[in-house]
Amino acid sequence: MIQKGIKLGKKVDELSTGERLHLIEKIEDKDLLLYLGLTNDSNPLYIQHDYAAETPYKKPIVPVIMLNGIITSAISKHIPGPGSRIIEQSLMYTEPVYHYETINIVLEVQHINISQNIVDIHVYATNEEEQSVLEGIIKVMPPV
C-alpha cells in the first residue's frame, strides 16, 4: 500500500557529484539480537563473548550484513531516497566492527550517469579510532 504524503527521493538530474550524507551509528545489543533473530545466524563470533575471546578478534564482532543494512537504509531514506533501488555493490570490510562501537559512515555521490539513470555512491566508514572499517561503491537507480 502506498502511503499518502511520502515523497520520492531525488531523481538522477537532481543529484550532484560530491553530495554527501554523514551518519553516526552505535551498534547496540538490541540491534545484534534482532539480526540474529531475523536470520537465525548462529555464528558464536557474533554474540558469545567466551567463544570470541579464543579467536584473533578477542571479543564479538558485528556481522557485516548489519553494516550493509545501515548503508542500504540510508540510501533508501536519504540519498537518493525513497523509490531508489540498489543494482550493484562492491564493499570491502577492512577491519571488524565490535559491539558497542560507534562508526562514522559517509556516502558520497561519486558519478552520475543521467542517460542510464545510475548513480555511483562511494561509501566509507571509520571506527572511533578513525580506522577504516569498510569502503566501496554502490550503484543505485534513483526514482524516475
Score class of each variant (00 low, 15 high):
Thr17Trp: 02
Ile61Gly: 01
Glu129Lys: 14
Val133Cys: 03
Ser42Lys: 09
Ala125Asn: 00
Leu15Met: 10
Asn68Met: 12
Lys10Arg: 15
Val62Trp: 10
Ser90Tyr: 07
Ile79Phe: 03
Leu23His: 05
Ile65Asp: 08
Leu45Asp: 01
Gln110Ala: 13
Met141Pro: 12
Ile105Ser: 00
Leu15Asp: 03
Val64Asn: 10
Asn117Gly: 07
Gly81Leu: 06
Val123Asn: 00
Gln3Val: 08
His111Leu: 08
Leu107Asn: 04
Glu95Met: 09
Val97Met: 02
His78Cys: 10
Pro56Glu: 15
Gln131Asp: 15
Leu21Trp: 01
Ile114Thr: 14
Ser42Asn: 13
Glu88Asn: 10
Arg85His: 10
Asn127Ile: 12
Gln89Phe: 03
Leu21Lys: 02
Pro82Tyr: 08
Pro44Val: 00
Leu107His: 02
Gly18Ile: 00
His99Pro: 07
Ile24Phe: 12
Glu19Leu: 08
Gln3Ala: 13
Asp41Trp: 02
Gly136Ala: 07
Pro142Gln: 03
Lys139His: 07
Met141His: 14
Glu28Tyr: 13
Ser90Ile: 03
Ile70Lys: 01
Val64Phe: 03
Val97Thr: 04
Glu19Ile: 03
Tyr93Gln: 06
Pro82Phe: 04
Gln89Met: 09
Lys30Val: 09
Asn113Tyr: 15
Leu36Asp: 03
Pro96Leu: 05
Leu23Val: 06
Ile86Ala: 05
Tyr93Phe: 12
Leu107Ile: 09
Ser16Leu: 10
Pro143Ile: 02
Leu36Arg: 11
Gln131Trp: 10
Ile24Leu: 08
Arg85Leu: 10
Ile71Asn: 00
Lys77Ser: 14
Asn104Lys: 05
Ile87Cys: 06
Glu19Gly: 02
Gly9Tyr: 05
Glu19Pro: 01
Ser42Cys: 12
Thr39His: 07
Leu134Cys: 12
Leu36Glu: 06
Val119Met: 05
Thr72Pro: 09
Ser76Ile: 09
Asp120Asn: 11
Lys30Arg: 13
Pro60Lys: 06
His78Asp: 09
Ala52Val: 11
Tyr57Val: 15
Ile6Asp: 12
Val119Phe: 03
Glu28Asn: 14
Lys7His: 11
Lys58Leu: 13
Leu23Ser: 03
His22Tyr: 14
Ile65Gly: 05
Pro56Cys: 11
Gly18Gln: 04
Gln131Tyr: 14
Gly69Met: 05
Ile47Arg: 11
Lys11Ile: 09
Glu129Trp: 07
Leu67Trp: 01
Ile47Ala: 08
Leu23Tyr: 07
Ile112Leu: 11
Leu91Ile: 05
Glu130Phe: 04
Gln48Met: 08
Ser42Ala: 11
Val140Asp: 03
Ile6Tyr: 03
Leu45Phe: 08
Ile47Met: 09
Ile65Thr: 14
Lys59Arg: 15
Lys26Trp: 06
Ile6His: 05
Ile103Ser: 02
